[in-house]
């Protein structure tokens, strides 16, 4: 490629990235400025692109109802609990599918598990409600959502962990058996460290899904347990939507996943690029 063509490609790339950034960053920008506006300013017919007056006290106002902070905690408990359960089950199942495909039901079973992830969740909304309602802990509890989200996160975790385990050379485990390890020791000391970056990425994906889930949470919980996603729509004043408070609260709710992502991004990149194991 000539020098000139190269420059052209660069310009086109920048234009493309610019347009793309506009699409992705504009909602964030809008969220940010709305969070600082007064309620009146959010409802102007001609919207303002920069707040006339800054109202940082919005971020305190969202906690006027003390239980709103509890909703963040509830979401955190549910997301974390579900992530741990998904990782535990997904790792064991993924290992079985990767190492003992025949004994573990073959490709059909592993694909069936993945296909659970593919149907539209609304389809099972009502049946699930009745099912969980019949459980001793009812629907309005942490454990109900922790278990329910397994329907979505466990297949994902199983499938991805299976891919990671397939990548981890079997011979390393065999070498460990000969070195004197029991199968469990070999799994823990040799194989698990190899798939750890992958596991962290899977964990983040599960956690973010559970953290953001609205549809099921809205139906299942609401009194004893409230997730932040169902709290956001409650910021209204009569028939008026308090966009500023909704945006402020959702900004606060963005902090945990963003922090998580920044802290673990090195694992994430390694885990989601091919060949996790090669290190």
């Amino acid at each position: 490629m000539s020098e000139k063509n190269y420059a052209l490609v660069k310009v086109l790339l920048l234009i493309f990235l610019g347009i793309w950034m506009l699409f992705t960053l504009f909602p964030l920008y809008w969220q940010l400025i709305t969070a600082f506006k007064s309620a009146g300013e959010t409802n102007l017919t001609v919207p303002t692109f920069w707040p006339d007056e800054w109202h940082p006290e919005n971020f305190i106002a969202v906690f006027a109802d003390k239980s709103n902070f509890g909703a963040l905690i509830d979401s955190f408990v549910i997301a974390t609990g579900n992530t741990l359960a998904s990782l535990f089950l997904g790792t064991l199942a993924g290992y079985a599918f990767a190492r003992f495909p025949r004994q573990a039901g073959g490709e059909n079973l592993s694909f069936w598990i993945l296909s659970n992830r593919m149907f539209p969740p609304v389809a099972i909304l009502i049946p699930m409600f009745f099912l969980f309602d019949a459980m001793p802990w009812g629907t309005d509890s942490h454990i109900s959502l922790i278990i329910l989200y397994l329907v979505f996160n466990m297949p994902l975790a199983t499938w991805l962990m299976m891919v990671f385990f397939r990548d981890a050379p079997r011979e390393l485990e065999e070498a460990a058996y000969l070195d004197g390890f029991t199968p469990l020791q070999a799994f823990r000391r040799v194989t698990l460290p190899l798939v750890l970056p992958g596991m962290v990425s899977v964990g983040i994906l599960c956690w973010i899904f559970a953290w953001n889930e609205y549809l099921f949470a809205n139906l299942f919980v609401g009194s004893a347990v409230r997730t932040f996603t169902i709290v956001i729509p409650t910021f209204t004043n009569g028939s008026q939507t308090l966009w500023n408070l909704q945006m402020a609260f959702s900004l606060i709710a963005m902090i945990p996943p963003v922090t998580l992502f920044i802290l673990l991004r090195r694992y994430m990149v390694r885990g989601l690029s091919l060949g996790v194991v090669k290190g």
Binding site: P169, L172, E174, A175, A176, L178, G180, P193, L194
Partner: peptide
């Protein structure tokens, strides 16, 4: 007998060293 009880050592074609 399990591999660990046979007291034999094996070197693999791919070396199979623990990379971490």
């Amino acid at each position: 007998l399990e591999p660990r009880d046979r007291n034999v050592a094996m070197a693999f074609e791919t070396y199979a060293l623990y990379p971490n």
